[in-house]
């Protein structure tokens, strides 16, 4: 098992100590020594590197490595296994994905929800079921004070009346029970007008607005039922919604496919439209689909993340600066280890509710009858499914225990593992490779930021 991970970005050699979380910037000497240390002894390292470096330099480098090793900042051990089920094992529910609409006014080709209906009947959630879901969340929340409800679908704005009613009811219930409810919504933007936008901006802690980037890219996948592209229908609405949102959280989020492996251009297009919080995610689809991402695409995708990284860094500190979701990583603190081991907590702390009130481990499992955990009107949840998900963590997932990125990606998406291999603990290699590439970029961005801050402090 590798205890360190080293890489070079923008000519900066970076070393991550996997188990402590420490990050070091090193010179080429130490970077090269770490190719051999600790397996090789001092004499063997001299033999390997003596042609490139002086003996005293190599000794100096080794001394510094050993000093950090002694402080637990290099080659530290993984002592966290006992924490793996600490967070998810509490039995508390914190967060509900409320599928208020199993229907959609778009027919996007790559939609995991089968164009909104999740392979079932097109249906909107009624108020009784929505209110019962709110009660269910509060009843199951234990001592947890801040709870989340995410309005999802389908297209949740097709059931805006219920969204409004849930916010009003939820706020009342929260007030009476000493809780705080935070709401989020994910929308394709088609139904946004000033009235709906203002309601969202007043009540939603976060809003996710779907746009894939350039017009031709967006319209290849995101279409109406009659095949009409949607870019021109939504882009101004999304811009207006963001303009009116002020400094509150939002993400303009796209999906890239095999048809636009040059997705950095789509990110830049959205940045140039004025959006400051952007994400693009790779489509997750079986390989027999023409737009699905395959192993053979990985090299091109990694190069594209590099292009995005360089342009992103160029814009840092300028008016063009923006935030790319996957290039954010907290090196100063971040979540605790217990949280990092378990990821999203689907099937335990995070659940999805359908318009019928059925409960699933998360929105990705909705429609798969093998994963129905119960109904909001029932007292009991299927503990068997909860237990299955509780056991899905980085020490049980195939390959994760040896991976340098395990404390940042938390084992990846369980639904992707299941979708590809029928096994929650399987490893979706294509997703892993992309995640590791993004993490290298994210760590490098933070290193560059911190070095700049330090430089600025010195000049003040």
């Amino acid at each position: 098992m590798s205890r360190i991970h080293k890489f070079i970005k923008k000519d900066i050699p970076i070393v991550l100590d996997v188990n402590s979380g420490a990050v070091h910037v090193v010179d080429r000497l130490v970077f090269d020594i770490l190719d051999y240390y600790p397996e090789a002894d001092c004499g063997q390292i001299m033999d390997k590197l003596g042609g490139r470096y002086k003996t005293e330099e190599i000794e100096e480098g080794l001394e510094e490595i050993r000093e950090l090793e002694g402080k637990g900042l290099l080659f530290s051990e993984d002592r966290y296994r006992d924490l793996a089920e600490q967070v998810t094992g509490s039995g508390v529910v914190k967060s509900l994905c409320l599928n208020v609409a199993h229907d959609c006014n778009m027919q996007c080709k790559y939609c995991f929800a089968s164009q909104g209906h999740f392979k079932g009947t097109r249906r909107l959630m009624d108020k009784d079921i929505a209110f019962r879901a709110v009660d269910f969340l509060i009843e199951r929340s234990g001592d947890r004070r801040v709870l989340e409800i995410d309005f999802f679908g389908g297209e949740p704005l097709m059931n805006f009346e219920v969204v409004q009613a849930v916010v009003e009811y939820g706020n009342q219930r929260a007030k009476n029970t000493g809780k705080k409810l935070r709401y989020t919504i994910t929308t394709n933007g088609l139904l946004l007008d000033d009235s709906i936008t203002d309601f969202i901006n007043q009540n939603m802690y976060n809003v996710v607005l779907s746009l894939d980037g350039r017009r031709e890219v967006n319209d290849r996948m995101r279409r109406l039922a009659d095949g009409t592209g949607t870019y021109d229908m939504i882009v101004d609405k999304i811009r207006r919604a963001v303009d009116r949102r002020g400094d509150r959280m939002y993400f303009v989020r796209g999906t890239f496919t095999r048809c636009n492996l040059d997705f950095s251009k789509d990110v830049m297009h959205m940045a140039d439209l004025g959006f400051k919080s952007i994400s693009v995610e790779p489509v997750v689809e079986r390989e027999d689909n023409y737009y699905s991402i395959r192993e053979e695409d990985l090299e091109a995708i990694k190069q594209e993340y590099d292009r995005l990284f360089h342009e992103y860094c160029r814009r840092l500190g300028t008016p063009e600066e923006f935030e790319f979701y996957h290039f954010k990583v907290s090196l100063r603190q971040g979540p605790c280890v217990a949280r990092r081991l378990t990821g999203c907590s689907a099937g335990n702390q995070y659940l999805a509710v359908t318009p019928e009130g059925d409960i699933y481990p998360c929105h990705q499992f909705v429609g798969d009858k093998d994963f129905i955990m119960g109904n909001v009107f029932e007292k009991k949840l299927d503990r068997g499914i909860s237990e299955r998900f509780k056991g899905v963590h980085v020490y049980n997932k195939e390959n994760c225990g040896q991976c340098w990125a395990r404390f940042y990606c938390s084992g990846g998406c369980h639904a992707n593992s299941y979708k590809f291999f029928g096994d929650l603990n399987a490893c979706y290699k294509v997703g892993c490779e992309m995640e590791k590439k993004r993490l290298e970029c994210a760590i490098a961005v933070q290193v560059i930021r911190m070095l700049k801050e330090e430089q600025n402090d010195k000049t003040v």
Binding site: V26, G334, R339, Y350
Partner: peptide, 21 residues
């Protein structure tokens, strides 16, 4: 240190503390 600059400390050790770092 001449060859190594530590950017952040052992955040994971210290921490032992929906749909990553």
């Amino acid at each position: 240190m001449k060859h190594i600059k530590t950017i952040n400390e052992a955040t994971l050790v210290k921490s032992v503390g929906s749909c990553v770092g």
